[in-house]
Design a protein around this nucleic acid. Sequence first.
DNA 1: ATGAAAGCGCTAACAG
DNA 2: CTGTTAGCGCTTTCAT
Lengths: 352, 352
Amino acid sequence: MAAVTIYDVAARAGVSIKTVSRVMNNEPNVRPAMRERVLDAANALDYSPNLSARSLAGSRSFVIAVFVDAALTIDHWRSERGADYLSRIQLGATLQCRDAGYHLLIELIDHDAPRVRQEVAALLAALKPDGVILTPPSSDNEIVLELLDKANTPFVRLGPERPDGIGPRVHMDDFAAAREVTEHLAALGHRRIGFIVGEPRYGASQARRAGYLAAMEGLNLPVSDNWVRQGDFTFQSGLEAAKVLLALPERPTAIFASNDDMALGCLAAAAEAGVMVPGDVSVAGFDDSPSARFSRPQLTTVRQPVAEMASLATRLLISGVIKGSASRGQVVDELLAFELIRRASTALPPAP
Amino acid sequence: MAAVTIYDVAARAGVSIKTVSRVMNNEPNVRPAMRERVLDAANALDYSPNLSARSLAGSRSFVIAVFVDAALTIDHWRSERGADYLSRIQLGATLQCRDAGYHLLIELIDHDAPRVRQEVAALLAALKPDGVILTPPSSDNEIVLELLDKANTPFVRLGPERPDGIGPRVHMDDFAAAREVTEHLAALGHRRIGFIVGEPRYGASQARRAGYLAAMEGLNLPVSDNWVRQGDFTFQSGLEAAKVLLALPERPTAIFASNDDMALGCLAAAAEAGVMVPGDVSVAGFDDSPSARFSRPQLTTVRQPVAEMASLATRLLISGVIKGSASRGQVVDELLAFELIRRASTALPPAP
DNA sequence: ATGAAAGCGCTAACAG
DNA sequence: CTGTTAGCGCTTTCAT
């Protein structure tokens, strides 16, 4: 059962291995008749080129790697909640890879361990991936960006993330999305709108807060420092922040949490406090996670085009549009549209 | 920026490349002092062996592949519900791989397309993975099993699945679990217990039904054909089956659905029909999916040790306990424990 | 348009 | 214990 190699195909087709190689790689300079003959031989033998050999000899590995934060991802997997972000990435990226004969590798990286440098360098040296997709917060990790650049490995930074830093980005406009949520609440008649900030390590957290503040200012609505609470994207932090907000003497009639998990925490806090949602207070989230639809009431939130971003990133990488450090001059900055999803958790404020 | 190779390390350490190879692979027959010197050189140069070269030259590829059904997985990803099974697999398998310097590849395979044979053969030829983890329903696909065996690729069949067929298995006892759920309902006082069967293509479906029937018989409880409805593991099928069950003249006081999605369908059907859960009818599911905890009331269900199964399978593969077709004689059959999770959806039957 | 030769970076099978 | 010599299966480069 020795594996069938390019030599077997060449022998059967009566050509040189180079010709077989040409055919397998769709290179030019092969007469149609010849190509046909080689293809027939390959089919008859069930030939499939060995990836390692191709990768070793050539410049392509047919592997796209996705770098995700280890601690975060494991946490999400363990909690069986929130693994949703990675699932969407996998959906978008895997399908593209499949169509192009590529393989997708999810790699956990210890985003802020002292050994990131070594870990990532080793990964790149060992795998030599044809492209890397960076997810937040690695999209903003300068060490990672530097190593990718040095290794001349094409990569795409998946947003949201800080606008600075090198490299191609595929992202969405968190600022605009947060502004739109806030304006939606204002349009319903809310004037006292509370906000729960996300984990500060994420670029998205700042962007969303800025969007909220910009909307409030644009609408000439007052913003009290008391109404802006710090959270960290967890259910628990949302619950605690909401507790404080709901206990305020002049409490907000609406709370906008920077993500769905925290918004669910708000719902829980409201239930505990005997406050009706949306009767007494409206709650909006961000992400459109699956749980946003299982909650009672269902959450008004923002759908992020995560699968679409991953899909686009993968296509850019595979197509060769992005070419490693060679493309540093060239700017790739794709902005994808979000969508405000209005559900039952936001409604008119209570009559005064 | 040429990549650093084994020659660079050998030169710096003043030894032959073979010695470097020995050190990198933890082979014996290297004096500690020598090993130290090589390690120092490797570190100084940030050397990391090229995976493709190792794979091409040697017998190991440091890749473990997980075969999942394409249609099913894409569907789960799209619906953003149920992707949970794959997430748990990834949790268990990825962590083990990471610890051992292996990489995990999730491969979608078109389980019942005419081209499975070619698709899987190509995958094995191209990747030469050190091991393959088969998930249901691929665990039962004879073509896949045959190809794996022929390619001499070690593999583990993740259960539940049919007991027949070759190869090592890591699974849980669906029969016993279903029996336990049924007995739990009976212990609460239920005598008329309905059952919703799962998608027939899954071995688990039969096993769970058998467990239900065995429990009923063992308890001398009547089983009416009317109480056993066919479903297909979807919410919708659970909803429809439950509608029928609830409309029965002498309707069951408890419904045991073969998975959580269908159980959620039951909850929806009950709500529609104005039937209280668990006041009027108890509902139990199977899987302990995340949504089982978001539902109202929360579902009584069975927790499957999916991550543990994947973790064990990965360890078996990496450790070399399972050795491809060479091990066909040797029986590996690991049975992992499930857990009945009692939540609010099951309670005493209504007073007659 | 096709082919021959020379590696890619590593491990395997021997030699010493 | 350490080193030498061949490949692994493919792509590259350079002839033809």
